[in-house]
Amino acid sequence: MALSSSNELAAAAHALCGQQHYPTHCLYVVATPIGNRGDISLRAWYTLSLMDAIACEDTRNSANLLQSLGLHKPLVAVHEHNEHSQTPLLVARLQAGERIACISDAGTPGISDPGAHLVAAVRAAGLRIIPLPGACAAVTALSASGVPAGTAHAQGFVFAGFLPSKGRERLTALQAWIAQAQAAQHNLVIYEAPHRMADLARQLADLPPLTLTLARELSKQFEHLHTLPSHDLAAWLAEDAQRLRGEFALVLHPSPVRAATADAGDLDEATRHTLTVLLDEGLPVKQAVALAARLSGAPRNALYSAALALRQA
């Protein structure tokens, strides 16, 4: 049954949301469900019902969503390939007095989805932007991941979104993001498509071990959350082909920083391997040591001694 067929729902939405002002000449950034359509908020539904047009990532997906909500609105495709060309047209419509909503296929626009360029252009034009909070895979995964004992900042996180698709660029980005999160003792949140999960698992196996929380198909029927050592991810995925289906949000928890009391002989195998990889990439010793220290938490004096030995070898 379409939501608009329920007089009770329409009355509730109007009672809760109708007293707020919904100005014209305004872009409304509206979060949509990441899976379960029941996660649409009454305010999102009410706001979408007032729009003159809706800028969306995929008109087919958005038409299905709106139909299930009992809404029928003109749709404008705004995706990664045409956002720059469509933005001036949408800004002109806003300047003419329309209300326009920006939505993505799932979740919050501008968060690893189109929308950020449009928002920036609307702001530059001196027009108003009203964001509506809602579903976000990163926050949803974090809320169920917890924080391993010994880490300092339970609430902090670094959001990387989708990593580059190419292997070498991907590894470099992964190392840099982990280093940033580890230095701050924050969680690192990554999005990943199913066809790249096996590659990600192999790359994580070559880096110092971390605790990983994997969230798959969030809010959907086959939602699955699992926490495991990052070095075990490849084996865990290989146990069941179903585990490679769906969209993934991954939370990499920081390792507690160790005291700087070790010498070169105290470095574990994973840390030595990381240092070797960095040196083989052509990084200067000082830069390789600094990055390896951030990634592993190992003392710099031990890493420096090991780096010199590796260079001599």
Rank of each mutant, 00 (worst) to 15 (best):
S5H: 14
S6M: 10
H21S: 15
H21L: 14
P23H: 01
H25G: 03
H25I: 03
C26G: 03
Y28C: 10
A31F: 00
N36Q: 10
G38F: 11
R43W: 01
Y46I: 12
T47D: 06
A55D: 02
R60S: 06
N61D: 07
A63F: 07
V76W: 05
V76I: 15
H79S: 08
H81C: 06
E83N: 07
Q86I: 00
I103M: 05
P114M: 11
V119L: 10
R123C: 11
I130R: 12
S143I: 07
A152C: 07
A154L: 08
V158R: 08
A160H: 05
L163D: 07
Q182P: 08
A184F: 01
A193L: 04
L200D: 02
Q203I: 08
P208D: 02
L218V: 15
S230Y: 11
H231D: 10
D232C: 11
A235C: 03
V251S: 06
L252N: 04
R258W: 09
A259N: 02
D266N: 07
L267Y: 04
A270M: 09
T271M: 03
V277F: 02
D280E: 14
G282S: 10
V289A: 08
A290P: 00
A292K: 12
N301P: 00
N301D: 13
A302Y: 09
Y304C: 05
S305R: 13
